[in-house]
Amino acid sequence: MQYRKLTNTVVCPRYGRGAETMDHLIRECPLSVSMWIELAIPNLLQETSLEFLQWLTWVFAQNAYFHCRLFCCAIWATWGERNARLHEKTSRTGIETAHFVRSYIAELDGVEQKTPKILQIARKWKHPPEQSVKINFDGAYDARLCQSALGVVARNSEGDVLLSSSKIHQGISSAFAAKALACRKVD
């Protein structure tokens, strides 16, 4: 931040001591160290001789997907906690940040489990018979804006596009009206 002339302060805003570098913020700050200990990501604090960017790469090479995900979320939470402390005058301990990270990951996992997996078998477009033209059309409706969009594509038996059109309509009252407009456009 100081290098980019965004602040005059060089002291870590989370701990009040030490220069605020990425290495200090993520690896050396006692609040971060206690967070990493609480998260128990294997080998994380062992390799201290590497420069910061090398260390990041090393962490990903050494750990499984779950731990890498936890690691990324923890870095994001550390930066967020740093900004909250600086701008909103709120603070968390390293252990509280670790609990936040675990809760956040658990919430993400819960959302993924609750999201229904709807498998649709995609039907491949079929060419029309020889000497015929096939016209596909559809309409979409946005109830919040009371508008619709329509699209029309005409193709020959080779699958070549002969014409295509799209249009947005304002003041549309329903999804049915949007589909009807798309159908009417084909005429």
Rank of each mutant, 00 (worst) to 15 (best):
68 C>P: 06
184 R>V: 05
85 R>Y: 02
71 F>Y: 13
176 F>H: 07
114 K>I: 06
123 R>T: 09
8 N>K: 13
65 Y>D: 04
147 Q>V: 04
159 G>V: 01
155 R>I: 14
8 N>M: 08
62 Q>K: 07
62 Q>A: 06
44 L>N: 06
136 N>Y: 15
98 A>G: 07
168 I>G: 01
69 R>S: 14
40 A>K: 12
24 H>T: 09
24 H>Y: 07
22 M>Q: 08
33 V>D: 11
19 A>S: 14
162 L>K: 14
78 T>A: 13
87 H>I: 09
131 Q>F: 13
135 I>D: 02
133 V>T: 08
49 S>Y: 12
75 I>A: 15
56 L>D: 11
131 Q>N: 15
154 A>Q: 10
180 A>N: 05
71 F>Q: 05
70 L>D: 09
69 R>G: 12
169 H>L: 07
29 C>T: 10
150 L>G: 03
138 D>R: 00
166 S>R: 05
17 R>V: 09
149 A>M: 09
78 T>S: 15
90 T>W: 00
159 G>S: 11
72 C>Y: 07
29 C>Q: 10
125 W>Q: 12
173 S>R: 13
178 A>R: 04
81 E>P: 00
35 M>I: 06
102 R>K: 14
18 G>K: 08
16 G>C: 11
71 F>H: 11
164 S>W: 13
4 R>W: 00
158 E>L: 07
79 W>I: 03
88 E>Q: 14
51 E>P: 00
145 L>H: 13
111 V>M: 10
168 I>H: 15
86 L>H: 09
175 A>C: 11
167 K>S: 14
138 D>E: 08
79 W>F: 02
2 Q>S: 07
82 R>M: 13
137 F>P: 00
129 P>Y: 04
121 I>S: 14
86 L>I: 04
171 G>Y: 03
187 D>C: 03
